[in-house]
Simulated assay, not measured.
Amino acid sequence: MQVFKSLKHWLVLGLGAALVCNTPAQTPVEATPPKLPNVVILATGGTIAGTGATSTTTVGYTAAKVGVEQLIDAVPALKQVANVRGEQVFQVASENMTNDLWLKLARRVNELLARSDVDGIVITHGTDTLEETAYFLDLVVKSEKPVVLVGAMRPSTAISADGPINLYNATILAGSKEAVGKGVLVVLNDQINSARDVTKTNTSTADTFRAPDLGFLGYMQDNRAHFYRAPLRKHTQETEFDISKLDSLPKVDIVYGYENVSRVPIDALVGAGDKGIVYAGVGDGSVHKDIMPALMDARKKGVIVLRGARVGSGIVARNGEVNDDKYDFVVSDTLNPQKARILLMLALTRTDDTKEIQRMFAIY
């Protein structure tokens, strides 16, 4: 009986082994590659598309020379992080940016973001007015999909060109879920900034873009975005501004405050038909005693007068240095003069009521 049990035991073991040995090998299942986001790169010119005489030329180069396809081809790694395609919207050095070009760019951005096969947009841009274009788009883009502006401080031909890594980071950011709903963003030097807060702070260094009051939103590192805060002011699809039917923007200019300032530029702008004037005053938007009569005269003629500050940081206090209620002025909050001008232009497409305009400066 014991022998039978042992024999039966080994037969079972042998049959099991045979079944194991004769079982067909399982074919390894290949991992499905992650679906890449669809990112459109809109090129507008600037230093990122610039060329210099030599590989060591980092100043005195020619901006806006390289086309969008060359920019994309120069960074082969882009194809590993997104399905990219490019469009040359226009090709200018950004000091030559105009309202008409802004409207053209904004319309194209809104057209693309309305498509289901576009997940995000990168805009290559010169750094001189990049912060202005970014804030304009932040107020008129009608989508929560990411829009990322990117530039470079050195031309594409420089031995230390920063354009390729900036473009690579911008493409990752534009295709990321983390950037959705955070408004228009600016990324250079591995740093993510809000369009509203960022400004160019240095004429030539790679770390020029900063947010003096409120700081970066986050960083680009190890091929992904790391956010530490989000912008709270209303932006993009939350705004009341619609440029779809606009052929132009109201004329608004900036007058700079300084010692012994003259009223001549204010009078000239009023005479030229300006709808609004941003006075970039000293300190907390203080107004020179010889300028106050000019601003009062401008307001009497229906021109919106907005007090800003040339300082570059801090809140301009309403009824602080000037009795704004008395003179029916508007103040800029924390917006620098060039961004206050943008919001005032867009506000004037909706109303000329100073109380309504001040409300907009409190929420955007």
Rank of each mutant, 00 (worst) to 15 (best):
Q2V: 15
Q2D: 13
F4S: 11
F4T: 12
K5S: 02
L7M: 15
L7E: 15
K8N: 13
L11H: 14
P24Y: 14
V29Y: 14
E30H: 12
V40D: 06
I41M: 04
A43D: 06
G46I: 01
I48W: 01
G50F: 00
A53Y: 10
T54Y: 03
S55P: 15
T56I: 12
L71T: 01
L71A: 01
I72K: 05
I72E: 03
I72C: 06
D73E: 14
V84W: 00
R85G: 11
S94H: 00
E95Q: 12
D100R: 12
D100L: 08
W102L: 15
L103M: 06
L105G: 01
V109I: 05
E111H: 06
L113W: 05
I123Y: 00
T124Q: 09
H125A: 09
G126S: 05
E131Y: 00
K145I: 10
L149N: 02
L149A: 09
I159D: 12
S160Q: 11
L173V: 02
A174D: 01
G181W: 02
G183R: 00
G183D: 04
V186I: 06
V187P: 00
L188N: 10
N189M: 08
D190T: 12
Q191A: 13
I192D: 00
N193V: 06
K200R: 15
T201V: 03
S204M: 13
T205I: 10
A206V: 14
F209W: 10
P212T: 13
D213K: 10
D213L: 11
L217C: 09
L217D: 02
L217S: 09
D222F: 13
H226P: 01
R233L: 15
H235C: 03
T236K: 08
E238G: 12
D242Q: 07
S248A: 14
L249G: 03
L249F: 06
P250R: 09
I254Y: 05
Y258Q: 06
E259V: 00
E259S: 04
S262D: 07
I266F: 02
L269Y: 09
G271C: 11
D274S: 13
Y279N: 13
V282E: 04
P293M: 06
L295P: 07
D297F: 14
A298N: 11
V303A: 09
L306C: 01
R307P: 04
A309V: 05
A317Q: 12
V331K: 03
V331M: 01
T334P: 03
T334E: 12
N336K: 07
N336Q: 08
K339Q: 10
L343P: 08
L344W: 11
T351M: 05
T354D: 01
Q358F: 04
R359S: 14
I363H: 13
I363K: 13
Y364A: 05
